[in-house]
C-alpha cells in the first residue's frame, strides 16, 4: 500500500454495520473522530482518548477495539461494527438492548454503546458466560452512573434470553 503522507487527506473505505462507507482522513485521524464527525455515526462515544474508559469500544473484523486507539486509516477495508448496528432492521431492540432497558442498565447512557459492543461480542463467543466472566469482561469499561449492578444484571438476563431464544 502506498505511503499516506501527513497533512493531506486520504480516502478511507470500510464496511460499517454491513454498509460500505467512505470519507477523507489525514493519517493521524482517530477512528472515533472519523466515525463521529466524518461518517456521522455519533453513537460511538469518546470518554478518555487513552484507552481506559471503554466508551468508544467497537468491533473491527469481529474483534473488540478501542476506536480511540485506532487510526481511521487502519480500518481501511475492514468490517466495522458499532452500536448503531445492534438493533433489528425495524429498530426493534436486540435482546441485549432490551435487557438493558428492562434492568435499568443505563442512566446517562454515555458509556453504554461501548459496553453493549463488548457484551455483544462476549455473548456471541460465550453464550453461557457466567456472572463472574461477565464482570471480568466488563472490567474494561467505566460507568459512573449505575454502580454496575444493573449492568451485570442486564447482561445476565440477556445471556439467558439469548440462550432461550436460540433453543426456541
Amino acid at each position: 500500500m502506498p505511503r499516506l503522507t501527513s497533512g493531506r487527506r486520504h480516502t478511507v473505505r470500510f464496511t460499517l454495520n454491513g454498509r460500505p462507507v467512505s470519507g477523507e482522513a489525514e493519517p493521524r485521524m482517530l477512528l472515533t473522530d472519523f466515525l463521529r464527525h466524518v461518517i456521522g455515526a455519533t453513537g460511538t462515544h469518546v470518554g478518555c482518548e487513552h484507552g481506559v474508559c471503554g466508551a468508544c469500544t467497537v468491533r473491527i473484523d469481529g474483534a473488540l477495539a478501542r476506536s480511540c486507539l485506532t487510526l481511521a486509516v487502519q480500518a481501511e477495508g475492514a468490517d466495522v461494527r458499532t452500536v448503531e448496528g445492534l438493533a433489528g432492521a425495524d429498530d426493534t431492540l436486540s435482546p441485549l438492548q432490551e435487557a438493558f432497558r428492562q434492568n435499568f442498565g443505563l442512566q446517562c447512557g454515555f458509556c453504554t454503546p461501548g459496553i453493549l459492543m463488548s457484551l455483544d461480542a462476549l455473548l456471541q463467543e460465550t453464550p453461557d458466560a457466567s456472572e463472574e466472566e461477565i464482570r471480568e469482561h466488563l472490567s474494561g469499561h467505566l460507568c459512573r452512573c449505575t454502580g454496575y449492578g444493573p449492568i451485570v444484571r442486564a447482561a445476565v438476563a440477556a445471556a439467558r434470553s439469548l440462550r432461550e431464544g436460540s433453543h426456541a
Binding site: T42, T82, E84, L93, Q97, F100, Q102, L106, F110
Partner: peptide, 21 residues
C-alpha cells in the same frame, strides 16, 4: 412503579444527542 424509561431506546441504539453529537 418501575416502568422502563422512555430515554432508553435512543440511548441504546446510538441515537443519543450529547453535545458533541
Amino acid at each position: 412503579r418501575s416502568i422502563p424509561r422512555f430515554e432508553d431506546a435512543a440511548l441504546l441504539t446510538g441515537r443519543g444527542r450529547y453535545i458533541d453529537d
